[in-house]
């Protein structure tokens, strides 16, 4: 079973994302900020990470830069999932090593299209 780590400080978003991803056949774990997410990844690298941008303690972009510097940190497909919807942010994310980018609000079709795009479904 493929694994996906959902990183978002909103419980509600994590819940919706979990539901959609479980329906797509993923085993889902959750983290509420970048620090917690790094800890999860060190314990076990997921196949995919759905990543919010604005979070307390450590932002999504800082998390991503740190992740890509970790051993095996290049492996997970990282999909940003954020309200930031301008080209500047999208380019920043891609430069930092994101594989795809989802602009909130999203629905099940968007999630499945993006996960198909990175080759995970």
């Amino acid at each position: 079973m493929k694994t996906c780590l959902v990183v978002d400080d909103s419980v509600a978003i994590r819940k919706v994302a979990r539901m959609i991803l479980e329906n797509l056949g993923f085993h889902v774990t959750e983290a509420s900020d970048g620090h917690e997410a790094i800890a999860w990844c060190r314990a076990s690298m997921p196949d995919a990470i759905l990543l919010d941008w604005n979070m307390p303690l450590m932002s999504g972009i800082d998390f991503l830069r740190q992740l890509r510097a970790e051993p095996q940190g290049g492996a997970p497909k990282v999909l940003f999932c954020t309200v930031e919807n301008d080209l500047f942010h999208i380019n920043e994310a891609l430069k930092a090593g994101a594989d795809e980018y989802i602009m909130k609000p999203f629905d099940g079709d968007v999630i499945s299209a993006k996960f198909a795009e990175v080759g995970l479904i």
Binding site: Y101, I102, M103, F106, V110, A113, E117
Partner: peptide
């Protein structure tokens, strides 16, 4: 633009 269009 999010249902099938690759971000690149």
């Amino acid at each position: 633009v999010q249902k099938g269009l690759p971000i690149r």
